[in-house]
Design a protein around this nucleic acid. Structure first.
Length: 318
DNA sequence: ATGCATGAGAA
DNA sequence: TCTCATGCATA
């Protein structure tokens, strides 16, 4: 068995705050520069705030809060700046995956150019497309109710992060009490037959409970899950359940293969991300080549990374 | 519980 | 092309 921890040796070292000309690093995109950017970024990254990007206009500069895992814990959120796998000196003294190109560590992503059939077979997708207005930019601070509660009337209460957090917590507990799994909830949602609401995956339910969804997503899902919870508890109370189980398990669908990015490459990507969260297509291509990854893989990685930043899990928000 | 991915819709 | 909501696959 292999139970290797990715954070190979958390070599601690003083965080050296290096300053470097960011412009040069990416304007050229040379091997050396890339490596250097990676190395420097790896050390300097402490907490980047997505400031106004010089490139594309960001119409929806929302909040980007720190997140951390460690769900399942009490509602007490801990404030803690997230940190990536800090490794420090590899780029400075040694270990430079880009230039030395001796990354013989592992390369599980063997598919160089397979007939990528992107089918993901599964024909019951239902999107809870809700286009709410954005929280405006921040995660908090409901204006001011001038006196009356008005609980379910306006978004103030519904969008309150603390309310969501509280609900998620309650939801999880009661769900467990009912002896229902996250996957069960997901499927059961379809049985609720609420307009536009179908089944959801275990992933989504899990993320809801752990608040690892975007603020808007949380808000959209809350009423749905709340509805399920009430229904489920009602049935549990009556102790009855009609044995109608449509278990129409899909026969055999093609399996999607999950490419896994090795630790060294991942560290590089994180370093690049620290200096430029939104690299252009060309830069992505260059990075992909350097790391010997498919361009699409790199692109998607950046997309997902950006999404992560926007997730909930407001640590020091309130 | 979370990493990598898809797809629709917005820019 | 990016964002956003979601999901499959997997640690």
């Amino acid at each position: 068995m292999k139970y290797s921890s990715i954070w190979t040796g958390a070599i601690q070292m003083q965080a050296v705050s290096l300053v470097f000309p960011q412009g040069d690093l990416f304007s050229g995109l040379n091997d050396g520069l890339l490596s250097r950017a990676e190395a420097l970024a790896a050390v300097d990254i402490s907490k980047h705030q997505s400031g106004p990007q010089p490139g594309p206009p960001l119409p929806q500069l929302k909040h980007d809060m720190v997140y951390h895992h460690g769900v399942g814990g009490p509602p007490s959120h801990n404030a803690r700046p997230h940190q990536m796998g800090h490794h420090g000196m590899e780029g400075l003294d040694m270990l430079d995956p880009l230039t030395s190109s001796s990354m013989t560590t592992l390369a599980p992503m063997g598919e160089s150019a397979p007939p990528h059939h992107q089918l993901h077979g599964y024909g019951a997708m239902n999107h809870v497309m809700n286009h709410h207005h954005h929280p405006g930019g921040l995660t908090h601070a409901p204006p001011a109710h001038l006196g009356h509660p008005a609980a379910a009337l306006h978004p103030d209460t519904d969008t309150d992060p603390r309310e969501l957090e509280a609900f998620a917590e309650r939801f999880k507990q009661r769900r467990i009490k009912l002896g229902v799994t996250q996957a069960d909830v997901g499927k059961a949602l379809a049985n609720l037959k609420l307009p536009g609401v179908g089944a959801l995956s275990q992933s989504t339910i899990c993320r809801f409970e752990s608040l690892t969804l975007s603020h808007n997503n949380m808000i959209a899902l809350k009423p749905i899950l709340q509805a399920w919870l009430e229904e489920a508890e009602a049935q549990a109370k009556n102790k009855r359940r009609d044995p109608d189980a449509p278990s129409v398990l899909p026969a055999g669908e093609k399996k999607r293969k999950r490419t896994s990015i090795a630790a060294p490459e991942k560290r590089s990507l994180e370093a690049y991300f620290a200096v430029q969260p939104r690299p252009s297509g060309e830069k992505i291509a260059a990075i992909a080549e350097k790391l010997d990854l498919k361009k699409n893989v790199v692109r998607v990685w950046f997309c997902n990374q950006r999404q992560k930043q926007k997730r909930m899990k407001f640590a020091a928000q309130h």
